[in-house]
């Protein structure tokens, strides 16, 4: 599902200095596999997820998502791959405040087809997902009226809305209390399992990582960290 080869990424600082962030010779995730990346803050975890999602472009290397080498794609090509194959759960949920829970989930489907068509919006699936994350009673609630845990559950439902082949979760439990933390992890695990979705979760929580069979240290993957 995901195969990364010889990935390198650096950023130019405002003072002109170039800082290398990532040097990943090899990293892959199989179909339906659930992988967790753990590492300290500032280790390039989010940048790696952005590169996998096609939001950020690698300086070099191959990134193959669902069989497509997105490193060769233009921005719109990467956007298309993302809209059709990738679900993204953010640390800060990033629900759109103008939309209800149901509409936020529908928004996850809206961009996988033409935005002038409603064909990709599927309220039935959105309701089903919200039911799955235990929020069928909050479908029409705005994010501002929901608890942190509820918001993150909506975010998970939204990430699954476009039936992704790969789910990227960027510290999804960092902002929720321990009780909700477990609920979120269970939810992501179960949903991915049920829909055979591969997953890459970035976390620095040992409690969370313990619950997954595959846990990779970013230090092992990112050669720059090893050099440091």
């Amino acid at each position: 599902m995901l195969e990364i080869t010889n990935l390198k990424k650096s950023f130019r600082q405002p003072n002109g200095e170039i800082v290398e962030i990532l040097d990943v010779p090899q990293y892959s995730v199989a179909n339906g596999e659930q992988a967790v990346l753990v590492g300290a803050s500032g280790g390039g975890k989010t940048t790696l997820l952005h590169i996998i999602a096609g939001i950020t472009v690698a300086d070099q290397g191959k990134v193959i998502v669902a069989g497509s080498d997105i490193s060769k794609f233009s921005e719109s090509g990467r956007d298309r791959v993302r809209s059709m194959n990738i679900g993204y759960v953010f640390q800060t949920f990033n629900l759109l405040p103008a939309f209800s829970a149901l509409e936020n989930v529908e928004l996850g489907m809206a961009f996988s087809g033409s935005i002038f068509s409603n064909s990709k919006r599927n309220p039935k699936r959105a309701k089903q997902l919200l039911d799955q994350v235990g929020l069928s009673h909050r479908m029409h609630s705005k994010p501002s009226t929901m608890s942190v845990g509820e918001q993150q559950r909506v975010a998970v439902a939204r990430a699954l809305a476009n039936r992704p082949k790969l789910l990227l979760a960027d510290e999804p439990t960092a902002n929720v209390d321990p009780a909700n933390q477990q609920q979120i992890v269970d939810l992501i695990q179960n949903c991915c399992r049920e829909e055979n979705i591969a997953m890459v979760m970035v976390t620095h929580s040992v409690e969370v990582s313990k619950q997954f069979s595959r846990v990779d240290e970013l230090n092992d993957i990112n050669h720059l960290m090893q050099k440091a």
């Binding site: 809209s83 059709m84 990033n94």
Partner: peptide, 12 residues
Amino acid sequence: AVMRALGANRGN
């Protein structure tokens, strides 16, 4: 940015 992350392109 969130909409972009959800798959919207610049044109969208």
